[in-house]
Computed example of a mutant assay.
Amino acid sequence: MKIYDITRDLSEDVVVYPGDIRPRFREIDNGQYRVTEMALGSHTGTHIDAPSHYVRGGRTVDRVPPGVLMGPARVLDCSDVDGAVDAERFADCLSGTRTLLLKTWFSGRQRFEPGYPALSLEAAGLIADAGITCLGTDTPSIEAYDGDGSVHRRLLESDMVILELLDLAAVPEGDYYLVALPLRLKGADGSPVRAVLYERDAKDQP
């Protein structure tokens, strides 16, 4: 069974969205064992946006059922897209899909680039109305750098969750199983995740 680790290394060099917390790590050695002091944000590295990230009173990360982040997932290759990923891109891939991951040219990039591909508001509405429960992207945000929050709100108001800053560089378009579990941070709006994909067995194909 082939497994793809689609999580970026969580280090001081990870891509950080402008204004977010730059992670810091300090090793403490007391002579018998070592521990590491960490400072990082809830949206550092590969992470989940819970509905409460934008929706007042929305579901917090500890209230997201684990099953939402485990199960069949479809990877859609959008590597040829510059700018907005429009609704037309999703015409034939939403039926029967619960989790959708968008692969763009940003996978593998090591520095923030404000022109990363992002979802259009029309596409966000189409995806939300289709009943998608988990939407992922390999970019720093599902929304354009100059966005006003409308895309996030349209998605999160439907009670879906968003995964951002995945690394899908080595993953071909197709159907997989996803596991992307966050820390159970009480009342938090997000959390780093460890995300992996593995290939679906032929007997599991629809």
Score class of each variant (00 low, 15 high):
42 S>H: 09
42 S>N: 09
43 H>K: 01
44 T>G: 01
45 G>I: 00
46 T>E: 00
46 T>G: 00
49 D>H: 15
49 D>R: 14
50 A>V: 13
51 P>H: 05
52 S>Q: 08
52 S>R: 11
53 H>V: 03
53 H>C: 14
54 Y>P: 01
54 Y>N: 11
55 V>L: 08
57 G>Q: 11
58 G>Y: 06
58 G>N: 11
59 R>T: 15
60 T>R: 14
61 V>M: 12
61 V>S: 06
62 D>W: 09
62 D>Q: 09
62 D>M: 05
63 R>N: 14
63 R>W: 02
63 R>F: 03
64 V>T: 05
65 P>K: 13
65 P>D: 06
66 P>D: 12
67 G>V: 03
67 G>N: 13
68 V>K: 15
68 V>W: 15
70 M>A: 14
70 M>D: 06
71 G>S: 09
71 G>E: 07
72 P>Q: 06
73 A>Q: 07
73 A>M: 08
74 R>N: 02
75 V>S: 04
75 V>F: 09
75 V>A: 05
75 V>K: 04
76 L>H: 05
77 D>C: 08
77 D>H: 06
78 C>L: 14
78 C>Y: 02
78 C>H: 02
78 C>S: 09
78 C>P: 02
79 S>D: 03
79 S>G: 15
79 S>T: 14
80 D>L: 08
80 D>P: 02
81 V>N: 02
81 V>F: 03
82 D>K: 08
83 G>P: 04
84 A>N: 04
84 A>C: 04
86 D>V: 14
86 D>T: 15
87 A>G: 04
88 E>Q: 09
88 E>H: 11
88 E>P: 01
89 R>S: 08
90 F>Y: 10
90 F>A: 05
91 A>C: 03
92 D>A: 09
92 D>S: 12
93 C>N: 11
94 L>I: 11
94 L>P: 06
95 S>P: 02
96 G>D: 07
96 G>C: 07
96 G>F: 06
97 T>D: 04
